[in-house]
Write a protein that binds this DNA or RNA. Structure first.
Lengths: 207, 207
DNA sequence: TCACATCACCGACCGCAAGTCAATGACTCC
DNA sequence: GGAGTCATTGACTTGCGGTCGGTGATGTGA
């Protein structure tokens, strides 16, 4: 890596971390792009070299996490219920690790991207839907779930849970522990929802 | 009512309906206040006579609905599970009756009000929390639920469900039926969650 | 009927912030 | 060391939310 590339990476990194701390302190809407660039000693234009829109900084945080959640959950040993619980736990960690303000803005952006309000398909948020769908489809293929499992319905249902958790987490003024939440969901609700579609041992044997 | 008051009411109504249809067509972010006022033949300033902020138009839609949901659910005959299912159904109707774009913006506004980002307590969204809390507290008082019911946790949990449902509904490109959703939740999950706190007939007799 | 008060309505104006772009000069590489 | 690249700059454009002093239609009291 050349010195020039190193400097660029460092600049990008500096903008990102400065933005995160400012946003967490003052709230996304109260931080302008100029606030960010001034605070880390670069010009406004530099921001737009690295980020297309102000909002794009939001996705930076969770990006790496997400790409890992899927893979780790597949490799996680256990029943389908345990795998899913693990998936949800990882997802929530990814979304919440940047703090309340970032999570809040992530949800906002995901629900309604500022650059293409109303756009439904293929947006960034679809990422998780697609991955969760693939995850469940594979579970069917691998014989963990029955062939008649309504994958799309379940995906919607699970995403609904995740969005609900996120929303509550980033709105809550009282202590709200995502891990405890996921735990309760996995223990009480997940089995009820999946029960009709989980193969018994005998069924699994028959294939 | 004088003619002047009638005109004013009519103007307000016109602004509101025009706004709704424009927002539903083009998306909230793509509709400026001037778009709205131009489309219904009034000046920009007039908008601000009736609405404090652009975003305030969002709450207009669901306002009446919400004020009714609580009352109706209390009067609704049935078990606590049935009452809650009724409550959720009314809530979702109120939120969804204005169309996808309005619901989308409602969720955004509720998560992070544009006029006071990060404000937690006493905001408009707290409305539902408070009412749901009161609803469950009364259920405890009336002997429908046990004394040790963790009302706050349940409220969070239920609001989480509602936010999840809303989010999915206004993001979904496929058919998503809130009523079916509430139905499933009420049938599969609600009983599991409430079961430890529902008084048996014998317990209820004892008081 | 008239004159004064009220207030819904108007639209030019302000401030601010997102995003652009042509110029600059530090760095790279032959 | 010189030509070319590209990260960086910051003045500028654009557009929108929100304000405010003025105006005339409507209401009111004598």
């Amino acid at each position: 890596m050349t010195k020039r590339q190193e400097n660029a990476q460092e600049t990008r990194r500096r903008i990102y971390t400065t933005a995160c701390s400012l946003i967490e302190k003052k709230g996304f809407a109260n931080v302008s792009v100029e606030d960010i660039t001034r605070a880390c000693g670069v010009a406004k234009g530099t921001f737009y070299v690295y980020f297309k829109r102000k909002e794009e900084i939001i996705f930076e945080c969770c990006k790496e996490w997400f790409s890992d959640v899927d893979r780790k959950a597949r490799e996680h040993n256990g029943t389908i219920v345990e795998k899913l619980a693990f998936y949800f736990k990882g997802f929530m960690e990814g979304v919440t690790c940047g703090g309340v303000e970032l999570c809040r803005q992530w949800v906002r952006e995901v629900i309604n991207p500022a650059d293409s309000p109303g756009e439904m398909c293929g947006g960034k948020y679809a990422y998780d839907h697609r991955h969760l769908t693939g995850f469940l489809n594979d579970a069917v293929k691998d014989g963990l779930l029955k062939k008649n499992t309504p994958v799309d319905t379940l995906v919607h249902l699970f995403m609904s849970e995740l969005y609900g958790m996120m929303t509550c987490w980033c709105m809550s003024d009282t202590k709200f522990d995502p891990e405890e939440w996921v735990g309760r969901f996995a223990k009480l609700q997940l089995p009820t929802l999946l029960e009709p579609y989980i193969k018994t041992h005998a069924e699994a044997q028959r294939g």
